[in-house]
């Protein structure tokens, strides 16, 4: 019996030893930063005074939060983030669903097309951003002989006048439109992959049964495919919201570090705001903003989970 206990203990120690590299790394790079973020967020004015070089004692309080929320720039960032998320998540989910269903329906070239649709996933998002910039850009804007990007050229074929998407003086909604297209494009491959996987695991007999019952195509889609895919759809929506709230690199990719078109309204997002605060040695404000972002994501995810549990249960 005693031997047995010793053996267990020894086995446990072995387990701990095997786990220790991962645990140490997690402690250093995940647990400590989280703890530190909490600490900095509740140290009034942390960072600001540190820069001055003094060994100051910081008071605990919620001053950082008050400052962040009271500051107009943050609310703009919140608005931009929300707008982009609310526009892109449904759009990309629906598009991904349609593409996945179509991909699943065609037999020839399926592999090839899957690869094409998957390409954006393995391409750097900043690089894609730069390509998008080129597509929407107007070179020599304001001169007598401007050269339009491919999008304006295509619109031109349909008789639409060139639109100032991203150049100096471009409007907020034109900027947002470009961002939405970019983000949706970027988000598609992952969603298609997940949904296609789900589709391919759906029992084909449900479709045979639907055929026998003379079910119209659209009804098959809405009444059978979508409900059977609902767990995957829920997953894609939840991760989509989380990704949407962390949107940042797409804006840098197209509009650069400034995160706005020349002379245009700010397109900064929450994560952009946090980076900016860090860059200006406002660690306290950055931490407070990070916690606010976390709280928002947490609440939205909870709502998502609650809704999807009700909708996907079968």
């Amino acid at each position: 019996m005693k031997n047995f206990l010793q053996k267990i203990k020894f086995d446990q120690w072995k387990a701990w030893i095997y786990l220790s590299p991962a645990i140490v790394l997690l402690l250093i790079f995940t647990v400590w930063p989280i703890f530190n973020t909490l600490r900095m967020a509740f140290w009034n004015g942390y960072g600001l005074f540190k820069e001055l070089g003094g060994e100051l004692q910081f008071e605990f309080g919620i001053k950082n939060f008050k400052w962040v929320v009271g500051y107009g720039g943050f609310l703009d960032c919140l608005k931009n983030t929300m707008l982009l998320t609310v526009l892109t998540v449904p759009l990309s989910t629906i598009l991904a669903l349609v593409i996945a269903v179509s991909l699943n329906a065609i037999k020839p070239f399926q592999r090839f097309l899957q690869t094409i649709f998957f390409l954006p996933y393995v391409t750097n998002s900043i690089a894609i951003g730069m390509v998008f910039e080129a597509m929407f850009n107007i070179v020599g804007f304001g001169t007598s002989n401007p050269s339009y990007g491919i999008i304006n050229n295509i619109l031109g074929v349909f008789g639409v006048d060139p639109i100032n998407w991203i150049n100096a003086g471009s409007g907020y909604w034109a900027n947002i439109a470009v961002l939405v297209i970019y983000i949706v494009w970027n988000a598609l491959p992952f969603k298609i992959l997940i949904l296609l996987g789900g589709l391919q695991s759906v029992n084909k007999q449900y479709y045979d049964a639907a055929k026998i019952d003379s079910t119209p195509r659209l009804r098959v889609f809405t009444k059978i495919t979508v409900p059977l895919l609902s767990p995957m759809i829920a997953y894609v929506v939840i991760t989509g919201f989380i990704g949407g709230f962390k949107e940042y690199s797409s804006i840098v990719g197209i509009f650069g570090d400034d995160m706005h078109a020349v002379g245009g309204e700010s397109l900064n997002t929450m994560v952009g705001y946090i980076y900016k605060q860090l860059g200006e040695n406002h660690e306290g404000d950055a931490s407070a903003a990070a916690l606010i972002l976390f709280a928002i994501i947490f609440v939205v995810t909870m709502i998502n989970m609650y809704v999807s549990k009700k909708k996907t249960h079968y």
């Binding site: 029992n203 007999q205 449900y206 045979d208 049964a209 026998i212 009444k223 059978i224 409900p227 059977l228 609902s230 079968y314």
Partner: peptide, 15 residues
């Protein structure tokens, strides 16, 4: 216009 009962029934699980 046929009715077919599948070997494993193929009832729609979400309905």
């Amino acid at each position: 216009g046929v009715g077919l009962v599948f070997q494993n029934y193929a009832l729609y699980p979400h309905m």
